[in-house]
Simulated assay, not measured.
Amino acid sequence: MPNYRRNRIPGGTYFFTVNLLERKSALLIEHIAELREAVRATRQQQPFHIDAWVVLPDHMHAIWTLPSGDDQYSNRWRAIKKAFSKALPKIEYRSQIRIKRHERGIWQRRFWEHTIIDDADYAAHMDYIHYNPVKHGWVRTVKDWPYSSFHRLVAAGIYPLEWTGDISEAFEVGELGG
């Protein structure tokens, strides 16, 4: 098994990509209420600030800031995945390995994490998150995707409603960027 090394900075701000196992699934938006409840319950037990979040049919991106002195984002993702999975009927295909490990066949085991390093990195990842539904062809404009923190940030005056993003910068970050 590979030795995964995660960067951990107590109170840090992190960008995440979390994928469903079945990348052609729409499970996340079909069960958005269950996902929201899983996040709510996890935040109640293990608080964190949601800077940005977008949920697409088969994956999601988020930026979280953890409380001072806390670097346990993996525990939070585990709790979210577990609560979401428990809320769904057991109808998915499971491999023999997943059955042996008592795992559901819903999530990819790992997630992608990037520690935000400065204001420019933060802004670029915020834009990447909010532009993602357009990038994947789900909508023509950012404001049309309902499962995004973009609407909350428009209401707070951080983004204008008609924001379309700087595409060149948005694609230099995310899972492939630094």
Score class of each variant (00 low, 15 high):
2 P>Q: 08
5 R>P: 00
5 R>K: 09
6 R>Q: 07
7 N>H: 04
8 R>I: 06
8 R>A: 04
9 I>F: 05
10 P>T: 09
15 F>C: 01
15 F>D: 00
16 F>E: 01
16 F>A: 00
17 T>Y: 02
18 V>M: 03
20 L>K: 01
22 E>R: 12
24 K>L: 05
26 A>S: 09
27 L>E: 10
28 L>I: 04
28 L>F: 05
31 H>F: 10
33 A>K: 10
34 E>K: 12
34 E>A: 12
35 L>E: 01
35 L>A: 08
36 R>W: 08
37 E>D: 01
39 V>K: 01
40 R>H: 12
40 R>M: 02
41 A>K: 08
43 R>S: 03
43 R>P: 00
45 Q>D: 13
45 Q>T: 10
48 F>A: 10
50 I>L: 07
51 D>I: 12
51 D>Q: 07
51 D>W: 03
52 A>L: 10
52 A>S: 11
55 V>E: 02
55 V>R: 03
57 P>Y: 10
58 D>P: 06
59 H>L: 03
59 H>Y: 13
59 H>M: 04
60 M>H: 09
62 A>F: 02
63 I>V: 14
67 P>D: 12
67 P>T: 06
69 G>F: 11
70 D>L: 09
70 D>N: 13
71 D>T: 03
72 Q>Y: 11
74 S>P: 00
75 N>T: 08
76 R>E: 07
77 W>R: 02
78 R>P: 00
80 I>W: 01
81 K>V: 06
83 A>E: 08
85 S>Q: 06
88 L>C: 15
88 L>A: 08
89 P>I: 15
90 K>I: 12
91 I>W: 14
92 E>R: 14
95 S>P: 09
96 Q>A: 15
98 R>N: 07
100 K>Q: 15
100 K>T: 15
101 R>W: 05
103 E>Q: 15
104 R>G: 03
104 R>M: 07
106 I>K: 02
106 I>D: 03
108 Q>S: 05
110 R>F: 03
114 H>V: 13
115 T>P: 04
116 I>G: 00
116 I>P: 01
117 I>H: 11
119 D>M: 14
119 D>F: 13
119 D>E: 15
120 A>R: 09
121 D>M: 08
121 D>G: 04
122 Y>H: 15
123 A>I: 12
123 A>D: 09
123 A>C: 13
125 H>N: 14
126 M>R: 14
126 M>C: 15
127 D>T: 10
129 I>A: 02
129 I>L: 10
130 H>S: 07
131 Y>T: 06
136 H>T: 11
137 G>A: 09
138 W>M: 05
138 W>L: 12
140 R>N: 13
141 T>V: 06
141 T>H: 11
143 K>L: 08
146 P>M: 01
146 P>A: 06
147 Y>G: 00
147 Y>F: 14
150 F>C: 05
151 H>T: 04
153 L>E: 06
155 A>L: 12
158 I>L: 09
159 Y>N: 04
160 P>H: 13
162 E>C: 03
162 E>G: 07
163 W>D: 01
165 G>C: 11
167 I>A: 13
169 E>L: 13
170 A>N: 14
170 A>D: 05
173 V>E: 05
175 E>S: 14
176 L>E: 13
178 G>M: 14
